[in-house]
Amino acid sequence: MLERRGINQLLQELGSIAPMGYSVGLHIRFASPLVYRSTYPEEWVDIYNTHSYYLRDPLVFWGLGLAGTTRWSAIPLPDPFGVMDKAARYGLNFGAVSSYGPVTSRSIVGIARSDREFSDTELSALEELTIRLHIEAKPPSELTKAQIEALRCLADGDRHAAAAERLGISESALKARLVSARIRLEARTTSEAIRKAREYRLI
């Protein structure tokens, strides 16, 4: 999980309008989010994850298929596995979902409460926070093939000399690739660059 002060601040704002918690999946790629956080009741989160309900959740299908913001009750998709009914047993009786970004890197945010439907004002706040979270969590631009190769060698445990030999380049050329990768990833060290590249699924 990427720890950024901006993301954490936005999540606090999100929590203030979600009495029963929220679920955030940012920049979903290859069926997996780059950033994931859920504050729904712990017992429900455990059940949801154990049974892989995200593969059957009508809210996820809606969010992947459409961009926008709506109440759960307005989503016309079928729920053959009863995911929403099961969620209601844990106090998630009313909710809203917001989806933003290209389908190749979609962000989906859900909020819930137990007592009433979310107001139009709360839906607008959810939509704005979803957009801001999506932008804040945006990964850096793609690395070049040369940068990926250099980072991958070190990630595999090679030292500089071995990595340079493996790639058929000089050590100074390898170091130049690593420096440029660190700059692009906004990393202070090569170890941090490797960690970020893994988190961003670039290597």
Rank of each mutant, 00 (worst) to 15 (best):
M84E: 09
P78V: 08
R29N: 03
D115E: 14
R106K: 15
L129N: 05
S38T: 15
I28R: 15
E43W: 05
H134D: 13
E165V: 02
I75Q: 06
I28M: 14
V24S: 07
G6W: 04
D115G: 00
V103G: 06
V83D: 02
T69E: 00
L174P: 03
P102V: 11
D85Y: 02
E186W: 00
F94L: 02
S119V: 01
K196N: 08
D158K: 12
A88G: 01
I135A: 14
V45H: 03
G82L: 12
G91D: 05
L92T: 01
R113F: 02
E117G: 01
A163H: 07
E171Q: 11
L2F: 13
K145F: 09
G168D: 09
D115C: 00
V103M: 12
E3R: 12
A155F: 04
R71Q: 10
A161T: 07
I194Y: 05
E42H: 05
H134K: 03
Y40E: 07
E42W: 04
V24I: 07
L167C: 03
H160G: 00
R195G: 00
E43Y: 04
R132M: 13
P139E: 15
L167I: 09
A164T: 10
R89M: 12
E186T: 04
R5Y: 15
L59M: 12
R188T: 09
S23K: 14
L202N: 01
S16Y: 06
L167R: 06
V109P: 05
P33C: 13
I148F: 06
L123Y: 07
A112T: 11
E42G: 08
Y200E: 00
E136Q: 11
I169C: 07
Y22V: 03
M84I: 13
N8Q: 12
I131T: 13
R195I: 05
V103S: 13
F118K: 02
R4M: 14
S191P: 01
L151G: 02
L143Q: 03
M20D: 04
I47Y: 14
S141W: 02
A125I: 14
E171V: 10
A155P: 01
W62H: 09
A155T: 00
L126P: 02
L151S: 04
A155M: 09
I47K: 13
P139I: 07
